[in-house]
Amino acid sequence: MAEKNNTMHEKNLAMVTATQRVVQILVKILVYAFLIVMALIILFPFYWMINSSLKTLDEYRLNVPTFWPRKVIFANYPGAFTTANLGRLFLNTLYVGVVSTILSLVITVLSAFAFARLEFKGKNAMFAFLMATMMIPGELFTITNYSTVNTFGWIDTYVVLIVPFLVSVFYIYLLRQNFLQIPNELYLAAKVDGTSDIKYLWKVMVPLSLPTLISITILKMMGAWNSYIWPRLVTKDDAHKLVTNGLRNAFTASTGDVNYPVQMAAVAIVSFPLFLVFIFLRKYIMKGVSRSGIKG
């Protein structure tokens, strides 16, 4: 009797786990379906950009769109490159990006070191004040900065695109936190050995905080690549325009009967370097972003 009961119980249990398993599998399928549908929605604009950029204008204007070009043409790419003068814009952006990144890194490393390792009067008060400035929206600075660079006569120069944004309180904060994690004993030992601060900074601190520095570099470069508002304000001539401004200016019309294949080719060319950076430095970008929350 007891044995029979037992087997009954086991049978019930087996049924319960079986239904549970079915439910589990169904939920899994639903979860995957949801994620894949969302992923497709996320990817769709990229696909549409590439698809459109490879079409002829006639094919693009078809009443019923084709989901892959009937005839793949690449002519839109050189077309876009010359229409938007992308070569010049790339060089400008690269120049501004590289110079401002290097200078910014130097300044950030030096100040983070001062805040992390050196002692001076008013250090904490100053640091707190700098942190407080992070709350203020950038637009508030921009207004006066625009007037300042006008006074300096910096309009239409590279300087105006580089200098006002060299110091980022956030980067100083980020790097200082990183420096603070490096044991002070290393610093004291270096002092005993008679190593100079600069040498210690360069040989020990910088290599140890390389991931943070790489994150800063990427965010800074992406910033130059994506910046739009400030360059638009302070560059009137084409010689100093950055890539985003050039793109928007070359294709002023975004709606109506625009030559979209060429426009999409230009967008693809501008997006491509970012994807390349993303593919190779995904880890650093995601780490940097999760700590900053700053876009570009």
Partner: peptide, 20 residues
């Protein structure tokens, strides 16, 4: 994939949305 829109230029991809 879900992170991909982050590494884009909001003006450039805005133009793609406009086209769509």
């Amino acid at each position: 994939i879900f992170f991909l829109p982050y590494v884009t230029n909001s003006i450039a991809i805005g133009m793609v949305f406009a086209a769509m």
